[in-house]
C-alpha cells in the first residue's frame, strides 16, 4: 500500500525525461512552416490555374448566349470561394493564436470550430455543388445549339454521372463525418463540464 506522498517520491525520482532538445523543435518548426506554405502554394496555384483557364475561355471564346457567360462567372466565383475558405482555415490553424486562451474558452473555440467545419463540409458543400450544377446546365444550353446532338448527349451523360458519383461519395463522407463530429463534441462537452 502506498500513500500519496509515496507516489510523489516515485514521481520526483523518475528518469522519464523528454528525448528532444530545443534545436530539434526549431528545426521542425521551420520544416512544418515550409510544408504548410508549400501545401498552401500548391492549392492556391491549382485554383488559380482553374480561375485563369475559365477566364481565358471567357475572353477568347465567342459565345452566343448570355447563359454561357453566367455559367463561367459562376464557376470562377466557386473557385474563388473555395480558395478563400481554404486559405482562411490554414491561416487560422497556423497562427495558433487560439491556443493561448484559457482552457474553458479554448474548449468553446474547439466546439465552434468543429461545427463550422461540419457546416462547411455538408451544407456549404451542397450549395457549392448546386452552383456548379447550375453552371454546367447553363453551359449545356449553348452546347446544345453549337454542337452535334451526340456531343451534347455525351456531355450531358458525363455531367449527370459526375454528379451522381459526387453525391454518393458525399453521402458516405457525411455519415462518417457526422459520427466523428458527434463523438468529438460529446467528448469536448464532457471536458467542458469538468472545467465549469
Amino acid at each position: 500500500m502506498k500513500d500519496f506522498d509515496a507516489l510523489k517520491d516515485l514521481w520526483s525520482g523518475q528518469t522519464n525525461d523528454p528525448k528532444m532538445d530545443y534545436e530539434g523543435v526549431l528545426k521542425d518548426v521551420r520544416k512544418s512552416g515550409s510544408a504548410m506554405a508549400n501545401r498552401l502554394m500548391t492549392e492556391s496555384l491549382a485554383m488559380l490555374a482553374g480561375v485563369m483557364t475559365f477566364g481565358w475561355i471567357w475572353l477568347e471564346g465567342s459565345f452566343l448566349l448570355w447563359t454561357t457567360h453566367l455559367s463561367i462567372a459562376i464557376l470562377v466565383a466557386c473557385c474563388i470561394y473555395y480558395l478563400t475558405v481554404q486559405l482562411t482555415d490554414y491561416r487560422r490553424l497556423s497562427s495558433g493564436k487560439d491556443v493561448l486562451q484559457k482552457p474553458d474558452l479554448y474548449i468553446s473555440y474547439l466546439q465552434k470550430y468543429q461545427r463550422e467545419r461540419y457546416n462547411f463540409n455538408t451544407r456549404n458543400y451542397k450549395i457549392y455543388s448546386i452552383f456548379i450544377g447550375i453552371a454546367l446546365a447553363l453551359f449545356a444550353i449553348e452546347l446544345y445549339y453549337i454542337s452535334p446532338v451526340w456531343q451534347s448527349i455525351i456531355c450531358l451523360i458525363f455531367s449527370i454521372g459526375w454528379f451522381i458519383m459526387c453525391w454518393r461519395l458525399m453521402i458516405s463522407y457525411r455519415i462518417k463525418e457526422q459520427e466523428r463530429i458527434n463523438e468529438m463534441i460529446t467528448k469536448l462537452e464532457r471536458i467542458k463540464k469538468q472545467f465549469d
Binding site: 522519464n16 523528454p18 528525448k19 528532444m20 530545443y22 523543435v25 526549431l26 521542425d28 518548426v29 512544418s32 497556423s94 497562427s95 495558433g96 493564436k97 491556443v99 493561448l100
Partner: peptide, 21 residues
Amino acid sequence: EAAAHDLMQETFMKVWQNLEG
C-alpha cells in the same frame, strides 16, 4: 510516451510561433 513527445513538440512549436506576442 510517443504521444507525449508529439504533444510536447507541438506545445513548444506554438510557444515559438507566439513568443513575440
